[in-house]
Design a protein around this nucleic acid. Structure first.
Lengths: 389, 389
DNA sequence: TTGTAGGCGTTATCAA
DNA sequence: TTGATAACGCCTACAA
């Protein structure tokens, strides 16, 4: 089957990012049988018949007349290979198109070379641009260190979520985990701490556990936003939040309250409401608000998707957003620029945040010292038409 | 280091989906050194100190007093294990929390157990909901067969794209590939055919290569859509398409022309324009159209994102979409329900399409017979406010 | 129907 | 500074 193989052509291999979906459940593969005319049964194995074999470390070693050990160490950058040897090895490997076999390496190293992230959503159809950007950021950084990023989805506080984390941790599917949408008393943080598996998080919890990660400081921007609205003359400002046990909800809600307080406005529980971070949720919440006797003149939403839903509801009620009512978001997802009217929002550099977060996690995994354990980021206020002006 | 380990608790393992990002470039890991007081140097290896070892096939075999062979075959569903043995093995494995080690399996099988998909975009920040759903669909199906899905991004017809496909194919990163956004004369199809690596595609090319995949039939829906617009009285219907070498562009454009023809309307090249499937592109194209002397009264867009951008432009020109001008999309992404006004579109079940596509690819990879090689799907017309009504 | 043994490609240990 | 060798966990040809 193997022909005299031609070596792959020389090519540069720019680093790249790849998403990969994998299943964790045990593999019970269906049996495939072949009924041979003679009557015997064979197991069909593999149809692929590529035209050449993979280039292995042995091929490189043989070509250079050195041992595979040396090749391996040279490639991995160990100090105990002669400078010349290393350079030659790397060049030759490159020319031959050799890439270390990932499976073999993982098997030997007993590391997954993978970091994990579990989307806090019901379905894997994550239509929130926040998630896409977040994943892209994580993935790119992981790729830079030749790590995989494993992503799955599970509803927050569900049984599925718990068993997913357990499987990833206990089954060594991942060497570290990125957390997002932290809850105030988050079992995940406690669990991962106990299991002594490296993790980082966007937002901290209230648990007395050392926080390593990034925190977006909603306060400053929110105060500015509220001040702006109040300066415009708004006194009846509604709030559409998320589940109260979320850290972001607590932060943003508190900032909302602080904004009111700064202007001497008493919060009205009637126009303080909670949705679920989706357009659908925002739509329903806004609909309710708009049916009130004393309709609010502004709606401050906990994220952009909620705001998009709220705008939908407002429009349906015949209100022109930006003129009859004012709506704001939070996140700065790219869609927010193309809503009608474009959405005023607090812009977070989601991609960059995720990128840095993954970097911190990788440092943790590799036992490297972290320059900053706790990073703070200030979202930037972007004024668009949804708040008039 | 290893303590007397407690066996993991019993738990059910529902199948799950995971995205994983991985880098393909050769791994030149930075050297990490340890300066020990004595003066010697040690190589830092692994910080993790989990509390127990992984459960291997040997553990299961030992516990049951049978050979690992039997365990392996029972787990894989081979026919030559006694029914009782198999059941006992599976139950025991389950109880012990045993999951076959993926790396070892891949190494031995010489298969990546991975299918690949390269996003036809510049950046990995895929903000198009179409992509998210497509990926989710692929991933879920892959997961069902315990396959990974490798995802990366490269601009169509770029050098990066070509080298990415080459690396995946030649380096055996994937066992099969899913293609999307087919070009009329698509080098990928020719290349993958030559390399004899299994692949499936959404849309076919014009190349004389056997087509295995799914094709969305734009024609019927588009004709209905055009008929509807014309029935509403529209005579000047603009078209905002994509790059002309795309198969979807050809199909949808032809359907647009057919729709005009059916009503005896001559196409006007001035209001036939091309964008790039993004909101930004749609915005720019629509802006140009709206500056014409003889402004079109309707804009038919090649996809939802283009339509969203077009709506943005129309709104900025002071036009009320649905009343002053009519705009339509294609895809039925979830955002399209929350635009202002909600978008009339041709809805494709993207998730389901991707799911089925991956299923076909897996069958191909496993040498299983395909029930249907060529599947046709008819997008459903969804009328919303963007076309009045 | 079950068990034995060899090897997939890599890295780590130890000796040279 | 280098090389021989033994695992890592799994699958499978072959023998029993």
């Amino acid at each position: 089957m193997l022909l005299d193989k031609e070596l792959p052509k020389i090519r540069t291999l720019p680093s790249c990012t790849c998403l990969s979906i994998l299943s964790i459940s045990a593999a019970f593969k269906p049996l495939i049988e072949f009924y041979i005319p003679g009557g015997s049964i064979k197991y069909y194995q593999n149809v692929l018949d590529y035209n050449d074999r993979m280039v292995t470390i042995r091929d490189v070693a043989k070509k250079m007349n050195i041992s595979i050990t040396t090749v391996s160490r040279a490639m991995d950058g160990y100090a105990d290979v002669a400078r010349d040897t290393r350079e030659l090895v790397i060049r030759t490997a490159h020319e031959m198109g050799y890439t270390p076999n990932r499976a073999a390496r993982q098997l030997r190293r007993q590391r997954a070379e993978t970091i994990g992230y579990i989307l806090p959503t019901e379905k894997p159809q994550f239509t929130d641009a926040f998630h896409s950007e977040f994943i892209a950021g994580l993935g790119d950084m992981a790729a830079e260190s030749n790590f995989d990023l494993l992503v799955s989805a599970a509803a927050p506080e569900s049984v599925a979520e718990q068993s997913l984390y357990e499987r990833w941790v206990q089954g060594r599917k991942v060497d570290g985990i990125v957390l997002n949408r932290i809850r105030l008393h988050d079992w995940r943080i406690q669990y991962l701490s106990e299991q002594k598996i490296p993790f980082v998080s966007l937002e901290r919890s209230l648990l007395p556990v050392e926080f390593i990660g990034i925190e977006a400081d909603a306060n400053q921007g929110f105060l500015e936003l509220m001040a702006y609205l109040i300066h415009q003359g708004h006194r009846r400002i509604a709030y559409i939040g998320a589940a109260p046990q979320l850290k972001i909800e607590m932060d943003r809600y508190n900032s909302y309250l602080a904004g009111l307080k700064a202007a001497g406005i008493l919060p009205d529980p009637v126009i303080i409401t909670h949705a679920n971070l989706t357009p659908e949720g925002g739509y329903l919440a806004a609909e309710r608000l708009l049916r009130l006797e004393n309709v609010p003149t502004a709606m401050v939403c906990v994220n952009d998707l909620t705001a998009i839903g709220a705008m939908h509801a407002a429009n349906e009620s015949g209100l022109q957003v930006g003129r009859d009512i004012v709506i704001t978001g939070f996140d700065g997802i790219s869609d927010s620029a193309h809503t009608q009217p474009p959405l005023t929002t607090l812009d977070q550099p989601v991609y960059k945040i995720a990128h840095q977060l993954a970097g911190m996690l990788l440092a943790l995994i590799n036992g490297q010292p972290l320059v900053e354990q706790q990073v703070k980021i200030e979202p930037k206020l972007i004024f668009r038409k949804s708040t008039g002006g």
